[in-house]
């Protein structure tokens, strides 16, 4: 069981990397209206761990270490 933790800067925080990437893309891709750069954390859980348990743990990990809630938000995706 894998859980993906997708981390993005909060909308109100200036995302300088996202801005720079957006500026590089916008000339060639007219349809683009924004771009945000974050992090992806892939958590591998041991065999037999239930999805519910894994999600609960992932959430705890996110709140205790993986994100800084002052400047970041995250969402979770179950994979496999």
């Amino acid at each position: 069981m894998k859980i993906l933790v997708k981390i993005l800067p909060k909308p109100e925080v200036l995302d300088s990397a996202g801005r720079a990437t957006f500026n590089a893309l916008k000339a060639d891709f007219e349809s683009l209206s924004g771009c945000h750069l974050g992090k992806l954390v892939e958590l591998d859980f041991k065999e037999g761990v239930t999805e519910k348990k894994a999600l609960e743990e992932a959430e705890k990990m996110a709140n205790s270490l993986l994100i800084n809630p002052l400047v970041e938000i995250c969402e979770f995706e179950v994979k496999e």
Binding site: V13, L14, S16, A17, N68, L70, V71
Partner: peptide, 16 residues
Amino acid sequence: CEIGLLPGALLANNNR
């Protein structure tokens, strides 16, 4: 800042 003994956070410089 990370441990919360000071308020705020430090992010990548504006010019990256």
